[in-house]
Design a protein around this nucleic acid. Structure first.
Length: 607
RNA sequence: GGAGCGGUAGCUCAGUCGGUUAGAGCGCCAGCCUGUCACGUUGGAGGUCGCGGGUUCGAGCCCCGUCCGCUCCGCCA
């Protein structure tokens, strides 16, 4: 801290070496302990606490005045640093060896009683958000926000040192053809037209590569008008990166170094490099998710070889018809409660399970000390397949095995979800400090959308197909084409993703065609990028990291709201400023905008 | 759009089977207290049990509706 006329030191800087020094401190009354005679005030500023003591025998007038000090009053005190009386030191405080004997005290501002106590956790989210500035005054929030700064700063420094140039791209830009819903901004000077807030600076950063910048980054605010979650806000921050003359390997290495720097700065830990890698196919097969949480096992096991010739018709016929039979062994979870079982089945049904309950085998020892296999399907299995399945799944006493038979997609989705729920029920990650980073690579380029009756980009339309899969693309075998795309995952959270891009105009046009974008539409919406690619676009690729999620995981929080100063609630509202809000008709008229929204209740009342 | 959980004092929560005047801790107010640090101590104030309707002799508790918050699904290239 730089001393000024307000203060000479901050409240956490007073130590035994300052005994005898006259200091001036500013801050808030953290607590006041009035003993009738002597009065103690813990004065708090951003950095910490110092005990200030008012003694009647030193200054009766001042001591009398100090009786009226209340929590969160803002003070400036002057005084003499003294060693605390023997036996009254406070080991819990960094400044606990000393105290400031106050000789002068100015109340810079009195505080009303706060709507909540800052030194206690509160669960009332409305109240926290309404008084967010007080919520942020709490130690935990203050720490989170400052930790976020450290992380961001580390990222900037790392990228700068790696030769990356920070460039700001427009906030007022065009709607995104595919992807999330856009926030729209009416363009007054172009009546009837609209800007959109960027979902990501994707096209701009590619054009910066065409511009020859070679290495770009941006701490970029992005906007998506979709429903919120604990890890999703309508406006969020990405560390957006793009580089020219690079292959996937270069980006992966760069991002590993970047994340290591961020976690070092934020949490002081050294992340082991390089991160493990897994193909999309393997992630789906083993974990039923493209962002697997590898902090626990509960892996999905393929049972095709066990049941290929089974007498149990349902399993055999599923396999014969090209489906899969897969299982999860939940070790030691045979004691699952009825409620938990119901919950799992509801979840599986929601995830697309066609039957009413998951098939299972529960292994428990009965009163006679004999192992029992409680299961609705045990009796259908042959002796040989019983033996192989128990061995394959390493089934032991107190285990419960869940089965699913169906399509590969269903099995991944359902068992992936069941896996996470069982882990939650068993509290497998409780108290864990593990940071399981993981690259998921070789994503599919395209996925068929039955809803749209067309192929859609799994990542985005600018993603490069793998060179060795180009023949598949040319043969219109779209579902099998893999992309030069990659995601970085931490403990089951997608931290970011990216790809090597298409830099050839023809290939980009072909990609648009596959996605059902007509040549006319391509000219209308993408002529700038198709044209740019004709003027010497270098090979390039990049990635974007979700800064909010990273800050959340560094801070050990479970919601990105805890690391965003002024977040939105579930309904995308800010309860502090009461935003969004209605606007005057006049303001709308200037923009040639009219709302068609009608209040249902008011309508009914009018009828 | 759907599902789940929650809403009781300023805050955090308890409230049994539907039954007397709805409780506790913290905070707040007042008194006492010269070494505390979650100070102590004595006393006090503070309630539209989210809102509306219903069942009942009687509802914080049961039913219906609705609002708000959180979590999840859908959605999020």
């Amino acid at each position: 801290m730089i001393p000024n006329d307000y203060r000479s030191r901050h409240c956490n800087a007073i130590r035994a070496e300052h005994i005898g020094e006259n200091v001036t401190l500013c801050g808030w009354v953290n607590s006041a302990r009035d003993h009738g005679g002597v009065i103690f005030i813990d004065l708090r500023d951003r950095e910490g606490l110092t005990q200030a003591v008012f003694r009647p025998e030193e200054n009766a007038e001042l001591a009398a005045l100090s009786h009226d000090l209340r929590d969160e009053d803002v003070l400036q005190i002057r005084g003499r640093v003294e060693r605390r009386l023997a036996g009254t030191e406070n080991a819990k405080l960094a400044t606990g060896e000393v105290e400031v004997v106050v000789t002068e005290c100015t109340v810079l501002n009195k505080a009303e009683i706060l709507p909540f106590q800052l030194d206690r956790e509160l669960s009332n989210e409305d109240l926290r958000m309404k008084y967010r500035y007080l919520d942020l005054r709490r130690e935990r929030m203050n720490r989170n926000i400052r930790q976020r700064h450290k992380i961001t700063n580390a990222a900037r420094n790392f990228l700068d040192a790696s030769g990356f140039v920070e460039v700001e791209t427009p906030i007022l830009s065009n709607p995104t053809p595919e992807g999330a819903r856009d926030f729209l901004v009416p363009a007054r000077l172009s009546p009837g037209k609209f800007f959109a807030l960027p979902q990501a600076p994707q096209q701009y950063k590619q054009l910066l590569m065409v511009a020859g910048l070679e290495r770009y980054f941006q701490i970029a605010r992005c906007f998506r008008d979709e429903d919120l979650r604990a890890d999703r806000q309508p406006e969020f921050t990405q560390i957006d990166i793009e580089a020219s003359f690079v292959a996937q390997e270069d980006i992966l290495g760069l991002v590993e170094g970047l994340l290591a720097a961020m976690f070092k700065a934020g949490r002081g830990v050294d992340i082991p490099l390089p991160f493990p890698r897994m193909t999309y196919q393997e992630a789906m097969d083993r974990f039923g998710s493209d962002k697997p949480d590898t902090r626990f096992g509960l892996e999905i096991t393929d049972m095709a070889d066990v049941f290929a010739a089974s007498e149990f018709k349902i399993f055999r016929s599923t396999l014969e018809n090209g489906g899969v039979v897969r299982a999860i062994n939940a070790k030691g979870f045979a004691g699952i409660t009825t409620g938990q079982m119901i919950r799992l089945n509801e979840l599986a049904i929601q995830a697309g399970m066609k039957v009413k309950q998951l098939a299972f085998i529960k292994v428990e020892r009965n009163a006679e000390g004999v192992l029992e296999y409680k299961s609705p399907l045990w009796k259908f299995f042959g002796e040989a397949e019983k033996t192989t399945l128990l061995a394959k799944l390493n089934v032991e006493e107190n285990d419960i095995v869940f089965f699913y038979a169906g399509t590969w997609d269903e099995a991944c989705n359902i068992l992936g979800r069941v896996r996470l729920e069982i882990a939650a029920m068993q509290e497998l990650t409780k108290g864990s400090e593990a940071l399981n980073f993981l690259w998921v690579v070789d994503f599919p380029l395209l996925a068929y959308s039955p809803e749209d009756q067309s192929w859609v980009a799994v990542h985005h339309p600018f993603t490069r197909p793998k060179a060795e899969d180009m023949p598949l693309l040319d043969a219109d075998d779209y579902g099998k084409v893999r992309a030069e795309a990659y995601d970085v995952v931490l403990n089951g959270y997608e931290l970011g993703g990216g790809s090597i891009r298409i830099h050839e105009s023809e290939l980009q046009a072909k990609m648009f065609s596959v996605l059902g974008v007509t040549p006319e539409e391509q000219q209308l919406k993408f002529s700038h990028i198709l044209e740019a690619f004709q003027f010497g676009a270098p090979p390039h690729g990049g990635l974007a990291l979700g800064l909010d999620r990273i800050a959340m995981l560094v801070a050990g929080e479970t919601s990105i709201r805890e690391v965003i100063a002024f977040p939105k609630n579930n309904k995308a509202c800010d309860l502090m400023t009461d935003s969004p809000t209605t606007v005057d008709f006049k303001q709308l008229r200037e923009l040639y905008v009219q709302s068609t929204w009608k209040d249902k209740k008011k309508d009914e009342a009018a009828d």
